[in-house]
Simulated scan of single mutants.
Amino acid sequence: MQDPEITDFKHFIRLIGRGQRAGRTLTVQEAQQAMTMLINGQATPEQKGAFLMLLRVREETAAELAGFTLAFRAVNLPDFASLNVDLDMGCYAGKRRHLPWFLLATMVLAQSGKRILLHGTHEPNSKRLYLKEVFPQLGLSVANNVAEAKLSLDTLGFAYMDLKNINPALDDVIQLREQFGLRSCANTLARMLNPSQATCSLQGVFHRKVDEKHSQTACLLNEQNMLCFRGEGGEVEFNPERDVTLHIARQGQMESIDVSSTANNWEIKPKELVAQHLLDVWQGDTDNVYAKHAIVGTLALMLLLNSKLSWQVAYQQAEHMWQGRNKQWPVPLSANISTMPFNTQGKFYAH
C-alpha cells in the first residue's frame, strides 16, 4: 500500500543514499511507490538520475526489483493479456559473438502449437545485434501494436515487439544509458515484465548471481513458471560450451538444476554475423554443429519450463523436434531483402 504522506521523491533518495550504516534498502511497497512516482513525473531529472545510479552502485535487492516490476507492469499499454501467450521471452542483451540461434528454437516450439512473445529494445552505443535488426533480413515482420502481434502469433506462432510499443516509460529509462554511460535496473525489469501475462517466462542474463536474484524476485511476485539462466552473451540462448545452472521459480518455490555443456569443441568467433546463415541452418543447407547445440539446448530449456520435464527428457525431445521440423521457411523471401553483415570486432559492453 502506498503512503499518501510521501509526496517528495527525495524521501526515497535519502533512504537508499545515506551510506552503509544509515541507509537501507526499500521494501516491495516502497519500491513500487518510488518507481510509480518516477514514472508519473514526480521526480526531477536530477532526482531520477541520482536514484537510478545509487541503485546501480549498491545493486538492487529482490524486493526492490519486485516493487519496480509491479510499477512498470501497471503502465503497460493495454490489451497484451488478450494475446493468449504460452511463453514470454525478453531479448534485451543482443548478440555479439554468435547469431541469435534461439530464434530457430522459438520457431520449432511454435510449430508444436505454442505461442511465444519475444520483446526487446536497441540500446544506444551497445554495438550488438538485436532481433529488431535480424527480423527484416529474414522476411519477418516486427509487430508495432497488439493487433499486429496477434496476427503474427496466429499465423506463425511467435511475434516480436519493441519495448517502446509495449511500455514506453520503461524503454525511456533504458535509453538513459546514453546519458549515464552505465546501465540501470531497467534491463532487468524489462526481462521480468511479461507484458502478455504468459504462463511461462524464460530469462537470460550475463552476470553471476543475477540469475539467482531473478528467481528470488519471481518468487516474491508469485510467478507461475519462470526460468532464468546465464545465457550466451546474456541472451535467452543456451551456451553449449559452458556448464550452467538453471534457476526456476514456480509460484513461490525455487529450484536449481545444474546442466553440463554439450559441445566438445570451442567455436571460433566469426568476424561477421550474417542473418542469412539462420535461414541456411533452418533449411538444412548448412551443417553448423555449434548452432545445432545452441538451438537444441535452448529448445530443451523451453520444454523443461513449459512442460515441466527433466533436463534429460527435455533435451531428447528437443533433438527429436529439431530433426522433425518443417524446414520450409514460414514467410516468403524477397530478393530485395537487405542482408548487411554485422561486424563482431571491437569493444562492446556485457549485458
Rank of each mutant, 00 (worst) to 15 (best):
G234I: 07
N225S: 14
L221I: 06
V205K: 04
A93F: 05
V85T: 11
A350D: 13
E255C: 03
Q316R: 14
C219A: 14
L52A: 05
S201V: 10
D287S: 14
E267F: 12
V57F: 10
V205G: 01
K209N: 14
D154W: 11
S261H: 06
T121H: 09
A105F: 11
W329Y: 01
K347E: 14
P332D: 05
R242K: 13
E212I: 14
E267H: 15
K292L: 08
A147R: 10
I39R: 04
S201E: 12
I16T: 07
F102S: 14
V173L: 11
R115F: 09
R250M: 10
R183A: 08
A66E: 10
A294P: 09
R183D: 06
D280A: 10
E133Y: 05
L129E: 01
L279T: 04
S260C: 11
E223V: 14
R18S: 10
F238S: 03
Q203F: 11
L182H: 12
C91H: 06
C91F: 06
A249V: 07
I166E: 02
R97W: 09
H122E: 11
L117V: 13
V331E: 00
L182V: 10
L109Y: 06
D171W: 05
I337C: 01
S152C: 12
P195N: 07
V244Q: 02
Q345T: 15
K164L: 10
H98M: 10
R115G: 06
R191M: 09
Q20Y: 07
L170Y: 06
N144C: 11
K48W: 04
G252Q: 04
P100V: 02
G181V: 02
T7G: 00
K132N: 03
S260W: 04
R183W: 03
M35I: 14
S184H: 04
L26I: 01
V236K: 01
K10N: 13
A105C: 12
N306L: 15
C91S: 15
G139D: 00
H351P: 01
S260K: 08
T25A: 09
S201F: 04
T245D: 11
R128S: 10
G23Q: 04
I295V: 11
N40C: 08
S112H: 12
A149R: 00
S261A: 15
G346K: 08
E148N: 00
G90R: 03
F348G: 08
D243I: 00
I248N: 09
R177T: 10
L109N: 00
H214M: 15
M35T: 12
A71Q: 13
A74S: 14
L109E: 03
N125T: 09
Y315M: 03
A263E: 03
A22S: 09
G67M: 08
H247R: 11
A34G: 07
F102L: 14
R115P: 08
I174Y: 05
P124E: 06
R208H: 13
T339N: 15
V236D: 14
S82W: 04
I16A: 04
L87V: 13
N165G: 11
N288M: 06
L279K: 08
E255Q: 15
P45G: 04
E5P: 00
N165V: 08
F80Q: 08
D287K: 15
L131W: 01
S310D: 09
A34L: 07
K114L: 05
L109A: 10
H214I: 12
A300E: 06
L299Y: 10
I116Q: 02
S334K: 01
L129Q: 01
L221G: 14
L77R: 12
L227Q: 06
